[in-house]
Nucleic acid binder design. Sequence first.
DNA 1: CTGTTAGCGCCTTCAT
DNA 2: ATGAAGGCGCTAACAG
Lengths: 333, 333
Amino acid sequence: MTKSSRATITDVARAAGVSLSTVSRVMNGNASVDAAMAERVRLVAAELGYSANPLARSLVLGRTQTIAVVIPDLANPTFQAILRGLSRAAADDGYHVLIADSAEQVETERALAETTRRRTDGVILCAPRLPAGELAELLPTLAPVVVVNRPPQESAPTVAADYRTAMAELVAHLYGLGHRRLVFLSGVVGSASGAARRAALAEARTAHPDLEILELPSGVDFDSGAAAADAVRATGATAVLAFNDLVAMGLLSAVAARGVRVPEDLSVVGFDDIPFARYTAPPLTTAAVPAAELGRRAWDAMSALLAGDPAPASSVLTPEVVVRASTAAPPAS
Amino acid sequence: MTKSSRATITDVARAAGVSLSTVSRVMNGNASVDAAMAERVRLVAAELGYSANPLARSLVLGRTQTIAVVIPDLANPTFQAILRGLSRAAADDGYHVLIADSAEQVETERALAETTRRRTDGVILCAPRLPAGELAELLPTLAPVVVVNRPPQESAPTVAADYRTAMAELVAHLYGLGHRRLVFLSGVVGSASGAARRAALAEARTAHPDLEILELPSGVDFDSGAAAADAVRATGATAVLAFNDLVAMGLLSAVAARGVRVPEDLSVVGFDDIPFARYTAPPLTTAAVPAAELGRRAWDAMSALLAGDPAPASSVLTPEVVVRASTAAPPAS
DNA sequence: CTGTTAGCGCCTTCAT
DNA sequence: ATGAAGGCGCTAACAG
């Protein structure tokens, strides 16, 4: 009737004929222990397959060696890439990551962040649509916390891509090609990066009085891109700025089905440069958001916070425009 | 000098003038407590913003309300979908998910599974390349554990897609179109689903003596598909079975650059039906692996295990072939 | 129905 | 250098 549950520190102590504290000390390399005794303890521990219960350690140490990441949509390639970069960077430093997919439910984001926070040492928050006010008041309750893709915050370091500049460059690319009438497929309302994109558009309009930029609401996925095809054509625009690559792909596909040629009849640009953007027909011109790098940096910032270092500065990366085959000069009218 | 750390059960008990147990009881709805007293406790708890420390609960209860999932590659759309289905299903049942991306390092998979297991209540293991023997000996140390996309196991329920049957149907589709000489881009060695695919091929060869199926090694991503283009053409095959959609996409792209038309000159089928498969040029014929559903079922199995129900039967889903535009009759020779 | 007591497994002063 | 004892925050017998 041997009890086959896992060995505890008590078992090891007893088997080695020492006290709990001694075992604890040798396992953690704290203080100094007689060499022979230490060796014996290590041996016994190995024999018993002992290693400290992480839960118990977490409770007493007050840290879990785990961070939480809240993501609005695990189906979105950009968030997937952020998660990947983050997860690998954290793993390299011996940290685990708890994921919380809010499935686009903005209302639950706060609760999600707060509950996961309690089981972890900090949270990385990707909440593009959480209203700025709510975000600001949520942040202090979450510390340590780092925010992804939002403007700099008072009470948390921020890691973000510069959507505004990238959008400006996309517009410049199109303008340089000769386009004067564009449509922006604007994604869902209330997203932070959407606001940044829109700001770039406003600036472009004042900089180029001869440039017209229309705005059409859309979603953020394939279907909404496809659904926008007719509306896009109806505007008479010669180029379209899709909210992201997914929307661009949906549009590309729907528009092809209607016999319009890209880029001869219509230029299309995406946003994000997801891995698939180079495999569309035609390959998509887009702005490359370094999502995995964003994730890595988010971890770096969190890591600094956890180490008690001075709060890291907000870091921002500027996406580069990658010109592929979905853009060209407008058709001669 | 108010201590602003979080309220503990002791604080609530003191503030409400009752004992710890009473607070615990009302918070958990256990036993029965005098209505008025319960109400007072609830009020105080709310005022203090109290809710039980999950770490402490985990320690005493012996459960963490969290499961671990080990994934070989967070960059692979199929695993992303499994993770998503899993994560949402678990969340619906109030469970959290700890992710462990082994980044294709088979050697670390075991350690990863074992460490994450200790901080969680169970693990969902996706380890397509872990040798069968190692898997079998690892499983008992992990219980409760559910295995994804591997043959049925002795000591763990299994959730899998039937890669063999799907592959057979893909071959049948091509054979029916008139193809008699195929190439299989076989992915990395040692993967369980790869073995299943290969088994289907062997059967097809004996069933159709006039059918020739060559095999070309490849990786599992875009680049390896692209890299195989010349070798594929050199075989003179009229159709290719790519290991997965990623490989197919890379191939499609490389082959287009060489001026070969798909499907007129060459038919191409993928595997998995990732979301992008319908947006390739041409849209990809492939076998639709219901990855998110796989994730959901993995959770269902885990949930049963956690509840102490009899071990759930292994469940298998058969992917459906979805015919799009990348396949057609072979060119008239 | 309520309060007291004993742990869950571990780390860490505090003595020795 | 080592051991004893207290406590992390909570739940679950056990009395009353």
